[in-house]
Amino acid sequence: MSLAAEAFVSQMAAAEPWPESATLYQPLKEDQILLSDCASSLAVQAYLRMCGLPVQVVCRANAEYMSPSGKIPFIHVGNQVVSELGPIVQFTKAKGNSLSDGLDDVQRAEMKAYMELVNNMLLTAELYIQWCDDATAAEISRPRYSSPYSWPLSNILAYHKQWEIRRKMNAIGWGGKTLEQVYEDVTQCCQALSQRLGTQPYFFNKQPTELDALVFGHLFTILTTRLTSMELAERIKSYSNLLSFCRRIEQTYFEDKSS
């Protein structure tokens, strides 16, 4: 997400149309990918499908190290590589595909704010549960994260990652939180999203935006992933409109395309 790279990308992007050979890279789906990465990856896929841009999903064990920002997922389009949802939205916009053009200024501000809410609370909570909850870290995160590597390296990488995330949690003040407090935060976030969504089909009425893609990516992944406890999913299940929102997007953008 470096600035020079971004400026370059947006310059270049306008020139070429979206190629058929666009690829999205993520870690191995069966053995390696973790909840938070899977959620971000699904969000990008949902966004691209909403835009009607075809993309081929490729699983690579070293996707994290291939990504220019070290974050998952990233897309490879023509001769450009862009990672994370925010820059990818910018990138598609430069190519003339945007979902948020129909919004007015206030709505766009609100959309961006809610996207940060999801990043700030849901994504952070996912990271917390993955790496700071000892049971989850020992049973799921470390073994899965290091699955492609052989013994000494696997331990080193997994513990290094865990250490890094824990330091980050301390820096943002989540280090002292208990698991229960994190679940509370998730509930608060879901409540906010549920209030905002109300009875509308999408967050800003009839048309999906990148916010819908992001929320779908996170909620759907949490709902369909088995962790050591299902508490996280249970918290979301109490909001019926969010559940039907996930089902709606899944049916509209994922089922008919695959069949």
């Binding site: 704010a113 940060e116 809410l117 990043n119 906010a192 999203l193 209030q195």
Partner: peptide, 11 residues
């Protein structure tokens, strides 16, 4: 509005 304020605080 409460939801909005939470969102803007995150922003």
């Amino acid at each position: 509005e409460g939801a909005d304020s939470l969102a803007f605080i995150s922003l």
